[in-house]
Write a protein that binds this DNA or RNA. Structure first.
Lengths: 197, 197
DNA sequence: GTCTATACTCTGATAGAC
DNA sequence: GTCTATCAGAGTATAGAC
């Protein structure tokens, strides 16, 4: 009863595929990149690649989880005081990886399908980010920096929506300052007393 | 030098295709709907359909423009005092057409490609909506309902981003109140004095 | 200009040998 | 675990009838 990827070699291969696929999509973008190309770049056949992922969509879900983990370590956890600073840091970094932004947005749209494999990732992702933002709001309310009348869950939904929507506008016009707009909106939403300084 | 669709019959056909395609995608969603199916439903061959649209993506662009025009007439212009009310009304209506929301989000992601035919639509769309929102902010600043320190362009970018991002969260969880969240965010962003009542 | 028939290419996916 | 071979379906392109 050994699951796929349980053996050392399989695990390494799977990780290698994930790493290469992430790089290829970051470089080439979502469209115009086939699994055959990813497979070739890994040095494996298409069925060889598909041995590790049920479908193309499952691969995408895995890529997004992988990238989320990397972002969290590199930008959110390290060097950020709270979830808002972390979110802003990730958004700032996003402008360096347009291919991944495109992949993320495309999958966010696809997650609307109840059957789509990426749905699970997005539900988890949105839930986690919303919770951490709501916690920041509650924390600042406890210390009096933010008015008690503010609804933490509402602000959390709004900040997540803003992060996603700003990425769309940035792909249309790279001069849009995603991180800056997010930060300014946060200040307006929770009141200037709660602004990041 | 007669363009495609210059004749009365062609114009009618093109409109019929647009109408049927919009209905099919609203019903079936973006995925799992092929051009062959749309063509069959129109009662025309696939090349017959493609005679009116350069490519699948051009058809999508036309669908989005058509839908935008309908929404504007039906919800924004009629029964709404200003651009914010109109935007909220369209968002409220969106929960009745999940297939079109999915199509819109998918194309919004695809518009990141500089070569993609829908890019033009989204640039126009975002520009127009942002301008009308910024005008509302400036109008309220002139009448003193909104503080002069608020940046109209920033608020406009934020409101558009919010509208897009809330649709993503709504597809993940239909209990999300897109219109309500948008309205509350607007009140916070421009200050309670400027809230819709 | 409008439209059909046919065929081409590429995609993700599967079957089965080794 | 990985390959070769093959598949059905997608969007697209061309030829030509009316």
């Amino acid at each position: 009863m050994t699951a796929r990827g349980s053996y050392a070699k399989g695990v390494a291969r799977r990780e290698e595929i994930l790493r290469v696929a992430l790089a290829v999509f970051a470089r080439e973008g979502y469209r115009g990149t086939s699994l055959r190309e990813v497979a070739r770049e890994v040095g494996v056949s298409l069925p060889g690649l598909m041995h590790y992922f049920e479908s193309k969509e499952h691969l995408f879900a895995a890529i997004l989880r992988e990238r989320d983990a990397v972002d969290y370590e590199e930008f959110a956890a390290a060097g950020s005081q709270d979830a808002i600073e972390g979110l802003v840091a990730v958004m700032r970094h996003n402008s360096d990886v347009p291919g991944l932004v495109e992949l993320y947005l495309t999958m966010a749209a696809a997650a609307g399908d109840a059957e789509h494999p990426v749905r699970g990732f997005f539900v988890d992702h949105v839930t986690a980010v919303r919770r951490s933002i709501a916690d920041v709001v509650r924390g600042r309310q406890a210390s009096g920096r933010v008015a008690a009348g503010i609804d933490p869950e509402h602000v959390a939904r709004v900040m997540v929506a803003l992060a996603d929507g700003l990425q769309v506008q940035w792909t249309l016009d790279p001069s849009v300052d995603m991180a800056g707009d997010l930060e300014r909106a946060w200040a307006l939403l929770v009141g200037d007393a709660g602004a990041v300084r």
